[in-house]
Amino acid sequence: MSSILTKIMGHREKKVAGPVARHSGLKQRLELKAPIEGADFVAFDTELTGLDFKRDSMISIGAVRMRGGRILPGQTFYRLVRPDSELKSQGVVVHELTHSDLEKADPVEEVLCDFIDFIGDAILVGHFVFIDVNFVNRAMKRIFGVGLQSPSVDTSALHDWLYESDSHFARHHQGMSLKSDLFSLARKYGIEVEKAHNAMYDAYVTAQLFQRFLPFLPECGVRSLKELLMVSKS
């Protein structure tokens, strides 16, 4: 038994230490004056048992890497998380995940560690990203004592900003969406939605949404990461 424990602990020890330790020093490394073009992004989404981050928990994380406006479909992350709170029954239906699926999943610390490793120094991109960030941040603080350091772009905020700044974007799409949920936006801007409510695909849709916005930013004076973060704050 002890050998198994050592194996798990040792394994975990190694995995936890590296990426999280590296992550804690992220803020010093970030070059926010760098141009958006060529910068690394990770679009991500989490599935939650509910929106109350005190009571609810994450059940999966999906993410896809981007370089500037280019999505890298070969570089994705999707993991289920073993829940530590009771699953709400209605949540189960939406996610199409069963209890047994989740019981077989990895513990949250392992998934988070791998996720932190996956995102590296990239800027996070999400739709209403503060929700996902809150959940990840809270879990990280609890488990590793270090919060999520990555800056994040909120595509819903970016959409609002484009709406207000009278960009060429609105003309290009013959008006903009008044609704702001991910799927209304996807529909309006011609993004195919194949499988809703799976963190991986939602992350992919978010990435594509971000991709639709990017070409219209330079003409509005948004060229560096810093400027991008400023106009896309949740």
């Binding site: 370089r67 280019r70 890298l72 479909p73 290009h172 639709r212 990017l214 070409p215």
Partner: peptide
């Protein structure tokens, strides 16, 4: 190939 493939969006007229 797919490892390194990326997907880019070009608005009409670009």
């Amino acid at each position: 190939i797919v490892e390194d493939v990326s997907l880019e969006y070009f608005p009409k007229g670009v």
